[in-house]
Amino acid sequence: MRHRRLVASIMSASLLIVLPGCAMIDAPTGSISRQEAIGTDDWHDVATEADRQRIRGWWTAWRDALASARAGGHGAAVAAEGALLAPDAALPNPHLPPGDYLCRTIKVGAQSAQGLSYVAYPRFRCRVEAEQDIFSFTKLTGSQRQVGLIFDDDDRQKIFLGTLMLGDEVRALDYGSDPQRDVAGLIERIGPNRWRLVMPRPAFESIVDVIELVPAGE
């Protein structure tokens, strides 16, 4: 399948980034070949079949995640987040401008009866970069860090495809090489200078992961 030709590493395009209080790490700006990604205007050509299914089933994942969180006693916390956790909150023009962002992850719904149905984390650092008409997203800090590329979809959402870096790893896996590390999501604008990355059915823990993004310094 064509996606297998699109998983070449772009580690040669990595940036050396110094994080406050941390050692210098090799932080990749994506895990899909930029050159080949530029050659397609359809994210379906890049995504694995599993990730195409995740994107197709985003609404069902949202429904199941919210039901799990509310059943776990977190209805007030869900309501307090307003548009961030409202499935239909997407606004026109989802373009995510290049720059540094503060990003906050909320895990909604539990995959197992023993899991936590709602977990909200403090803000971390993220970055969006543009190169050769391709935009990348990198979560720079935290124990779980998504890294990958952003593709056009429609006037209310873009598609994110990438991989998950864990712990002290400094290089991302190639997209498509490990299904448990592949990440697929929808990028939506939910307010002035406010976006979210919605990742349905992640491999670990939750039913939906949501990353809120606001420009750093706001």
Rank of each mutant, 00 (worst) to 15 (best):
A76Q: 11
Q157M: 09
T29E: 14
I55H: 05
D153C: 06
A77D: 12
R189C: 09
D154W: 02
L164H: 02
M11W: 13
S68V: 07
F151E: 07
L91V: 08
L173G: 10
S9I: 09
D42R: 15
F124P: 06
W58H: 12
I10V: 15
A216S: 13
S33R: 03
D133L: 10
P202C: 04
V183N: 01
L85P: 01
I25M: 14
G57F: 09
Y175L: 02
A27F: 04
P94L: 09
P215R: 02
L102H: 10
Y175T: 03
N193G: 10
P28Q: 15
D45E: 11
A71S: 15
S14H: 13
P192T: 15
L6F: 11
R104Y: 06
D41K: 14
V18E: 13
I106K: 00
P87L: 05
P202F: 01
A76W: 07
L16N: 15
V210T: 08
G176T: 09
R104D: 04
V108A: 01
G30Y: 05
A61D: 09
A216R: 11
D133V: 06
P98G: 02
G75K: 00
V147L: 02
G109K: 00
L186K: 07
V210D: 02
M199D: 02
L6Y: 12
A203M: 05
L91Y: 07
A67I: 06
R63T: 12
I38D: 10
D168F: 10
A110Y: 05
V198N: 00
Y101G: 03
W59A: 12
P200W: 00
L96K: 04
D100R: 13
R194D: 08
R181M: 09
G162W: 01
R189F: 02
Q180R: 11
Y101S: 08
P122F: 07
G99T: 04
A8Y: 13
V208Q: 03
V46R: 01
T48V: 07
P20H: 00
T141C: 08
Q114R: 13
I17N: 08
L173S: 12
L19N: 10
V18P: 07
A61S: 13
R56P: 04
K107F: 00
G191K: 06
P215Y: 00
E36A: 12
L85H: 02
S117N: 09
D209K: 06
N193S: 14
R196T: 04
C126T: 02
G142D: 06
G148H: 01
A203D: 11
Q114L: 13
I106A: 07
L197V: 08
P215Q: 02
R196V: 01
P20Y: 01
A61E: 10
G191C: 03
R123W: 13
Q157Y: 03
P87R: 05
N193F: 08
Y121S: 12
A172T: 04
I190R: 01
P92D: 05
E188G: 02
A77F: 03
V18I: 08
V210G: 01
C103R: 07
L173K: 11
L91S: 08
E169Y: 07
R5I: 11
M165F: 00
M199K: 11
D88Y: 05
P98C: 05
R52L: 14
R189Q: 13
R52D: 01
L166G: 06
Q146D: 15
Q114E: 14
R125N: 08
G142R: 00
E49D: 14
E205P: 02
R4A: 13
R181H: 08
I150P: 01
